[in-house]
């Protein structure tokens, strides 16, 4: 499973699970980029069929509804493009 890395200010573990086709995921990725923090992201719809099951199980650990975007910040999970919550959590 290849995650992509975006460089920036260190804020511990910040992981974005997203879909490449989703407008809210794009807004979330843009917000994280604009905030200038370092994060990793994975387009779950682009994962090959062999790896998909493992990736789905990984996302479900954080968000049983398996919805996107799912952002994991340390031990906290934010589901959906919740701009205020994301800004606060990453301040």
């Amino acid at each position: 499973m290849k995650t992509e890395h975006v460089d920036g200010r260190d804020h511990g573990k910040v992981m974005l699970y997203a879909l490449s086709t989703c407008g809210w995921c794009a807004k979330t990725k843009q917000l994280l980029t604009d905030l200038g923090i370092a994060f990793d992201y994975l387009y779950v719809d682009k994962v090959g069929p062999d790896e998909q099951k493992a990736v789905v199980e990984e996302v479900e650990k954080y968000n049983p509804a398996l919805s996107f975007p799912t952002v994991v910040i340390g031990d906290r999970t934010i589901v959906g493009f919740r701009e205020d919550e994301l800004r606060k959590a990453l301040a």
Partner: peptide, 8 residues
């Protein structure tokens, strides 16, 4: 749906 993971 572009915002949901399809099973295919």
């Amino acid at each position: 749906c572009p915002c949901r993971l399809a099973m295919g």
